[in-house]
């Protein structure tokens, strides 16, 4: 099994490299055809030099650090409250019945719409942006906790109770691990929702951060910078999604035998 997944990993890297090469090639080609003026359509090289320049300035690092800090704070708040609300819904059938459809509804609600009330409540500051981030991720995590635990097979719970597990030990040794595939998959969704919401909020509220750098590039008519920042946003999202969540999910699915192949995107 290990040899197989090692082989498929190499194949995956080769596929990704080929895809990237084609993408850059087409991009360069369209640039050389000069269909659009350079200031509307920079070349890959121009974007790359813009990327290096903004790293040299420290602009990009500050942006990434600021955004990541907000993201982490918002995400941790979402996990704490999401898990708490999810557990309350498990405990109280009334809460479960009423909050679940509400949560499902609010998940398809664009969280960027929370920017307006957030500005009025908190002003143009970090609190407002963190609030929008939380509204993006909270309900994924709430529903993941609730659905994951509620769909735990009663046989597992009966077997564990029969073996003497009660209360906290039943919860931590059985219900939580039984729900872990669902919970981790919703944590992953929550992370990407949080990231999207935050960048949106930063674009509007304009105080440091990567979202703000995007708007800064637009004001300067510097599309190279805009693309460089977009690449950074993409990279930050991917690094966590791949290194943290995908590895975690693959570990769980391999252990549970949910799929023989690692889940890729």
């Amino acid at each position: 099994m290990n040899r197989l997944s090692g082989k498929s990993r190499i194949n995956g890297i080769a596929d990704a490299a080929l895809f990237l090469a084609v993408l850059l090639g087409v991009w360069e080609l369209v640039y050389r055809l000069a269909i659009y003026p350079t200031y509307l359509f920079p070349s890959p090289a121009m974007v790359a030099s813009s990327l290096f320049a903004s790293v040299n300035d420290g602009l990009l690092q500050i942006g990434i650090l600021t955004s990541l800090t907000r993201l982490l704070i918002g995400y941790i708040i979402s996990i704490v409250f999401g898990a708490a609300i999810g557990l309350a819904m498990v405990k109280s059938p009334y809460l479960g019945r009423t909050l679940r459809p509400f949560g499902v509804g609010i998940q398809s609600f664009p969280s960027i719409a929370w920017v307006s009330p957030a500005i009025l409540w908190f002003g143009f500051n970090d609190y407002a942006m963190i609030f929008v981030t939380v509204m993006g991720a909270l309900f994924s995590i709430t529903l993941g906790t609730y659905d994951g635990i509620r769909n735990t097979s009663p046989t597992y719970i009966n077997a564990a109770r029969n073996m003497g597990a009660r209360g906290a030990r039943l919860f931590f040794f059985v219900m939580l691990p039984a729900a872990s595939p669902k919970i981790v998959s919703e944590l992953r969704h929550g992370w990407s929702f949080a990231w999207r919401s935050l960048i949106g909020a930063e674009m509007i509220m304009a105080t440091l951060g990567l979202g703000n750098l995007l708007m800064y590039g637009r004001e300067l008519n510097d599309l190279s910078l805009v693309f460089a920042v977009m690449i950074a946003i993409f990279a930050v999202g991917q690094v966590f999604d791949r290194l943290l969540f995908e590895n975690l999910q693959n570990k769980i699915s391999q252990r549970w035998g949910l799929s023989t192949e690692p889940i890729g995107l």
Partner: peptide, 13 residues
């Protein structure tokens, strides 16, 4: 009074 379940009910994790 320990039960051996029909499907085993082993914990996959």
């Amino acid at each position: 009074r320990l039960m051996v379940f029909q499907e085993g009910a082993l914990f996959p994790w």
